[in-house]
Design a protein around this nucleic acid. Structure first.
Length: 423
RNA sequence: GUGGGCGUAGCUCAAAGGUAGAGCACCUGACUGUGGCUCAGGUGGCUGUGGGUUCGAUUCCCAUCGCCCACCCCA
């Protein structure tokens, strides 16, 4: 083995690709029903886009980006996250159009690159199915996005998804909260873990989700953002809850959900599944009302979501939801004897042109070997062609499930095979 | 970036200081124009890589690479 795939990446061989296609198809179909349009953006962007939107102090920007310089000396970064490119495209392509009030709804399925240390459920290249709804501050839209995600999981057969919601406030109330939080913890900072001592200065909100026992004790009685929301944010959060309840969506309020990206305002949410290990989040998102303006666009509020395809596949695996074996289909042309080779080769060509999935054994082996191969590879029919058939202008079609055989004239063979597939 | 575990046939795994074995898979045949069951036979491994100890290492030691798991954080 000379070459390896880069650490943290995966090959998806042909026998696994159908699982991916199923998840993607389910998502795309759902997006169509919810009326989200697909947006495709480049795999790399200007580095600054991520730095400025995600935030300099976040883990993503400070240590996880795949950044490189092109020959013109520009700093570029492989897509580290899905929202920033969407916002960039919205502004750059003027996707909003003339109707400033219009709700722009877009989705994407794209690879995401982060240079983390790989572990169960964490890859350096992973894939996210995401949606963004731009142009409304209505909590009904937040709820729609959560609804779409939960419907997505359900249609994939995934049960037992937990929904955690929180509000991280806005430009007005969040800073005040941070001050209050720091004040309440100030006396105990020295007793907290090293990371938290650093966070106290760099990213105080993170103090709340430290898993260290000591730190949890310190923050146990700390103020909660939810208690200090400004009137507007509180109203929005209540509105979200009302809409979720209207849809009979169960949720848990978890004041420690903060999310690792700086642009979130008001709503933050996360989906978790216990079937996974330490990395149990299968999706998450929130509102980013300031981001678009901050990126140089119009002042538009927005909400979005990203779901991890690898983790969804892992949950399906853990729940025993592996797709059933593909049903048998296609025809295997069996050439009987050397004289039958060219007629069989020609028949293969004709069948394919007429819309039939067909294959032949290029090794020109014994009939027994050809039949065994046709069986093990899951073909539905064996189309036998030998001296007898050629003389009569027919082919012998063998049903590989029942073993029944029928002689079929060559002229109608393609149609016959296509019908059999349906039946 | 830090810590722990593991690297033997295509796959899942054994063995043991004296140069490796099973099951599955694959191939051929019994069945001379026919798969799935059965039986017989067969292909396949410089035991991750490089050093060291030893008469001798795949087995012991060191390093290195790779994979896995956990921390941080996220999908």
């Amino acid at each position: 083995m000379r070459y390896h795939r880069p650490r943290g990446t995966q090959d998806i061989p042909p026998d696994e690709a159908p699982r991916w296609r199923f998840v993607e198809k389910t998502f795309r179909d759902l997006c169509r029903r919810f009326d989200y349009g697909e947006l495709r953006t480049p795999v790399f962007e200007e580095t600054e886009l991520f730095v400025r939107s995600v935030g300099e102090d976040t883990d993503i920007v400070s240590k996880e980006m795949y950044t490189f310089e092109d020959k013109g000396g520009r700093s570029l970064t492989l897509r580290a996250e899905g929202t920033a490119p969407t916002v960039r495209a919205l502004i750059e392509e003027n996707l909003q159009g003339q109707d400033r009030e219009r709700l722009v709804k877009m989705y994407y399925v794209a690879p995401i690159f982060r240079q983390d240390r790989p572990q169960a459920g964490r890859y350096r290249q992973h894939h996210q199915a995401g949606i963004e709804a731009i142009g409304s501050s209505e909590p009904a839209v937040d709820a729609e996005i959560i609804d779409l995600a939960l419907t997505f999981f359900e249609e994939l057969g995934i049960e037992g998804t937990r929904l955690l919601i929180n509000s991280v406030g806005c430009r007005d109330c969040a800073p005040q909260f941070v001050d209050t939080l720091k004040a309440s913890v100030a006396d105990a900072v020295d007793s907290m873990c090293r990371d938290c001592q650093r966070r106290y200065d760099t990213n105080p909100l993170r103090l709340l989700d430290c898993k260290q026992e000591v730190c949890r004790e310190v923050t146990e009685n700390a103020p909660m953002m939810l208690d200090l929301l400004c009137g507007e944010c509180e109203c929005h959060f209540d509105g979200l809850r009302e809409h979720l309840e209207a849809l009979a969506i169960a949720y848990e309020i978890d004041a420690r959900i903060v999310r690792g990206l700086d642009y979130y305002t008001k709503t933050a949410f996360e989906f978790r599944h216990e079937a996974l290990g330490a990395q149990d989040s299968i999706g998450g998102g929130g509102r980013y009302d300031e981001l678009i303006k901050q990126c140089g666009g119009p002042d538009l509020p927005a909400v979005g979501l990203g779901a991890g395809i690898e983790r969804i596949l892992m949950v399906r695996e853990a729940l025993g939801l592996r797709d059933e074996d593909e049903p048998r289909d296609g025809s295997f042309v069996v050439a009987i004897g050397d004289d039958a080779w060219f007629p069989a080769y020609r028949l293969l060509h004709d069948l394919r042109r007429e819309g039939v999935k067909a294959e032949i054994d290029y090794r020109r082996r014994s009939i027994r070997a050809q039949m065994r191969y046709a069986d093990s590879q899951g073909y539905l029919n064996a189309v036998l062609l030998g001296g007898d058939e050629i003389a009569k202008g027919i082919a012998t079609v063998r049903d590989m499930i029942s073993g029944e055989q029928e002689e079929v004239p060559l002229e109608g063979l393609a149609e016959y095979l296509k019908e059999r597939r349906e039946g």
